[in-house]
Amino acid sequence: MKVLIVEDERSFAKELESFLVKEGYQCEVAHTGNEASEKIFVNAYDFILLDLGLPDYDGFDLLEEAKEGGQIASFIVLTARGATGDKIKGLNMGADDYLPKPFSLLELASRMNAITRRKHGLQKNIIKIHGFEMDIQNRSVHCGEASVPVTKKEFDLLHYLALHKNKVLTRLQLTEHIWGEILEDDYESNYIDVHVKNLRKKLSEYGNCDFIETVRGIGYRISMPK
């Protein structure tokens, strides 16, 4: 799948590119609005990651231009402006998602996956993890016929780990995903460990939950055969 990264911060564009390449995307980078405008006019992309704060172009204009020019790509707006107005404006103008900077690259990958699934009607509602089944629609976890009573946060945690299976997720990435929206006073909290502990306890009553691995000093990982 082809991705156009429109980002004037070269250093950040580079990081995005190297991450997305690893995720299996083909990437092109535009550092200015004009460059982007040209590329959008000539090529067809699956994704356009659009930074709103370009030096030579208003990001919204670029979005409008692309939509009018028949660009079929899904747009994800990336911005440090973080104003609610921008978010609503972006989504109204046909952007598929909106990520306020700074964001976790994993979060970006999840959003891109979700858009792809939505686009191709591949809404996978059941995720199978070593004998457990997660129902995304009902937000429930089953083991065979039995239902595992997980809390909202535990479900989110398991879901995020499963989405990024075989990858080590740091506590911070998990915290960001689960608590990121809320501004609070805490840092370096060990709540993620508590959540994982509780989750393991609940799952182990129904089956083997060794698939949730602790990676010492770093975080957690769900290993699944590819």
């Binding site: 911060e9 250093s11 950040f12 990081e15 995005l16 190297s18 991450f19 690893k22 440090a80 900077k101 700074p102 964001f103 976790s104 690259l105 994993l106 990858k167 080590v168 740091t170 990435q173 770093i218």
Partner: peptide, 15 residues
Amino acid sequence: TPITILQSKFENILA
């Protein structure tokens, strides 16, 4: 913006 750059760098190195 600089925080975003650093964060993505860290993430990439950790991954």
